[in-house]
Design a protein around this nucleic acid. Structure first.
Lengths: 196, 196
DNA sequence: TGTACATCAGTGAACGCGCGTTCACTGATGTAC
DNA sequence: TGTACATCAGTGAACGCGCGTTCACTGATGTAC
């Protein structure tokens, strides 16, 4: 039952998209190849027609995760050009540090989802991750309302660091002390917005 | 070859301390029970004389990790009382965001070491982690040089979020783009110190 | 205080399960002529 | 354009390894009398 090349490529993309979501939800080690393929609607044997190894897939999924995250950033930066530039950044911060972002099963930001675990993955995964972070920061700089290019990059580093740290802190407390978890989001949010 | 109760307790503590280091280095899943016991100088069979399960050990190791991290915080806060209070916080920030902290095989800060992976562990691990984060923030507040208690807690949340995010970003880039990794530490460091 | 027995930390072999990966097979697609 | 053969995506069984956990055993310690 050989498939059209087009259909095969579509299936591969579907497997990567499924993996991207599951990995964000359960981590790399929490998703078995057989589980993933079943979730994508296939049997597991065909996996190696598309990927050299599970690590190969992890790299592809991570690449997709960053592309999507950067896409959301760029979209916000684009709409920011119409109105006040500061409003776009404000909106992103509020969205990133919202309770719904924190309580999502699968956090969308790749740094908050994979930050401490990619360092224990193979080199191909680390390469993709590092490249993704770099691109993400470059896109983030477009959201910074004022300053020249180096100043914007610096400011994006400061803001993004605070976002990542706050989201991780809040997530780690969400089950045990929701009040403190909320307070963390509020506190960092108000601190960042006061600087705009 | 039954051992003295005292000796047995000492051995258990030694296993936990070994696990604490190895877990920070390789993550929970990167350390096999047999590896750990061998590294601690034992054979693996005795493991279940001390722990109910690997998760039970993970909780104990995480508890120790936070105790040590908080101990370092308290020590710095204590020395800060002699000199200017702001100097103690400044020293902690500089140490936390140093290149040597970033390049250490086993990062000491539990949040930077385990942040995104504890959420995928069992409930006992998550409980210990949440309690540790809470205690850590309370100790951190003692390092904040001015303000009343709630203000200090707010400021410690802001500073610690920035520290965690910056360290994670820098670590993820260290292998692929050391210049940018350094720039991240410098940028966040200078931003935080400017506020003192 | 001394003796007899129960307890239990540590040993090393073994179990059993999950998971990444391989393989023979199917049959529709792609291609050479 | 039609035909014959090679290719290859997907299937499902099987392999093999690693790892968490169990177990029978040892012999020194703890304890009851």
């Amino acid at each position: 039952m050989r498939l059209t090349q087009e259909k095969a490529a579509k299936n591969k993309a579907h497997v990567i998209a499924t993996a991207e979501k599951l990995f964000r939800e359960r981590g790399f080690e929490g998703v078995a190849v057989a589980d993933l393929m079943h979730e994508a609607g296939f049997t597991h044997g065909g996996f190696y027609n598309h990927f050299e190894s599970k690590e190969d897939l992890a790299a592809a999924a991570l690449k997709l995760a960053f592309e999507q995250a950067i896409g959301r950033l760029e979209q916000r930066a684009a709409t920011g050009k119409d109105t006040k530039p500061a409003a776009a950044l404000k909106g992103y911060i509020e969205s990133y540090l919202s309770n719904s972002t924190r309580d999502a099963k699968a956090v969308r930001c790749p740094m908050a989802a994979f930050g401490t675990s990619t360092l224990r993955q193979g080199p191909s995964v680390q390469k993709v991750f590092a490249a993704g972070v770099k691109d993400y920061l470059d896109s983030f700089a477009k959201l910074i309302p004022e300053g020249n290019q180096p100043e914007r990059l610096q400011e994006s580093i400061r803001v993004y660091s605070a976002l990542v740290g706050a989201l991780m802190l809040s997530r780690s407390l969400a089950q045990e002390d929701e009040a403190l978890a909320n307070k963390i989001l509020e506190t960092v949010r108000s601190g960042l917005l006061a600087d705009l």
